[in-house]
């Protein structure tokens, strides 16, 4: 794993929405570092703040969000960077694939128009090599008949095609950091693999670091070096992918992995985590997972678990992690 100076360092990041009197803490006390060329997977509950975390790094949060903490990218503090410089970074070093393909593409312009615009911007920003033509960009993400797609409007493409157009745009010029929020949800298994391979190649050829947010745990397992698991706005476990998947230490991670569909005696078995997701505006004082946790002890309900290191670069926020709980 690459070490040394981190490319991205997030320290004590908090993002709040809603009224200050009754805040929704979408991201709470997040600490995270990413080395150049590293691939990090983020998984976790729906609504646990994954998209918000990424948007905070890209500074694309809505104005209503209250952000505090530090986000350092290549030595620059992003949260206090003037918008003009931030825009320059976004054009060149930082790229993001957003979770919402339809709303990220302008319905009034053809795919070609929009792709050309991105390519022009990247060229101006002096993006690193490899900038091909629009057709090449689409071919790289395995779109059939790319010349035809350039002339089509977003609504004339299938969901998966739109998603690939966005991936194509974000990877057109190798950025130093690529944040991909659910880049493959709408894709069939074979094209999905090709996109993941594209990310890996980007890392290998240009040293791009990748943050991939996805509900597809198998994608994370096969692509990423490290994985972060989030629950109710907090990072609950972080560690080397292999280790986390082999021996998850947080009960939420364990329950999440257990709810993957299994095939038992010819039947698909689903095992959802019992109980309800907590309301982010009314979190209990202790561990947010306590109410649904099979291993919870009274302490869990009273006090928020502190970080505990359970292996090399493997940390867990759980009172019982040290005991090899559950």
């Amino acid at each position: 794993m690459p070490h040394g100076e981190p490319l991205l360092a997030i320290r004590g990041l908090n993002v709040e929405f809603g009224l200050p009197a009754r805040p929704v803490r979408a991201v709470a006390d997040a600490d995270l570092t990413l080395a150049p060329g590293e691939i990090l997977g983020i998984a976790g509950e729906s609504g646990s703040g994954k998209t918000t975390l990424c948007a905070a790094v890209m500074r694309t949060l809505p104005r209503t969000a209250r952000v505090s903490g530090r986000v350092e990218f290549a030595g620059k503090e992003l949260l206090s960077l003037p918008e003009r410089e931030m825009a320059r970074l976004r054009g060149r070093d930082l790229a993001m694939v957003l979770q919402n393909p339809m709303t990220s593409l302008d319905p009034l312009y053809t795919i070609g128009n929009q792709l050309e615009e991105v390519l022009r911007e990247r060229r101006r920003g002096g993006g690193a090599g490899r900038l091909g033509s629009a057709v090449e960009v689409l071919r790289r993400v395995h779109l059939t008949a790319p010349e035809l797609r350039l002339r089509q409007y977003p609504h004339q493409l299938s969901g998966g095609m739109r998603q690939r157009v966005l991936v194509g745009m974000a990877t057109a010029a190798a950025p130093r950091l690529l944040i991909a929020d659910e880049p493959t949800t709408a894709l069939d298994a074979s094209i999905q693999d090709e996109i993941l391979i594209l990310f890996r190649e980007l890392r290998e050829s240009a040293g791009t670091a990748v943050v991939i947010v996805t509900h597809d745990l198998s994608a994370i397992r096969r692509l990423s070096d490290r994985v972060v698991i989030m629950y109710a706005g907090r990072i609950v476990e972080e560690g080397p992918t292999v280790e986390v998947f082999r021996a998850p230490r947080h009960p939420y991670t364990q329950a999440l992995l257990a709810s993957l569909p299994r095939i038992e005696e010819e039947e698909v078995v689903l095992q959802p985590i019992p109980g309800q997701v907590p309301d982010l505006a009314r979190l209990p004082p202790g561990c947010a997972f306590a109410a649904r946790c099979p291993a919870a002890i009274p302490l869990c309900r009273e006090e928020r678990p502190r970080e505990r290191t359970v292996g090399e670069r493997h940390r867990v926020f759980c009172w019982r992690a040290g005991e090899g709980a559950a």
Binding site: T60, A95, S104, D106, E117, M169
Partner: peptide
């Protein structure tokens, strides 16, 4: 476009 224009008004 790309990331910056992600948030449509």
């Amino acid at each position: 476009m790309s990331a910056a224009a992600g948030e449509r008004p």
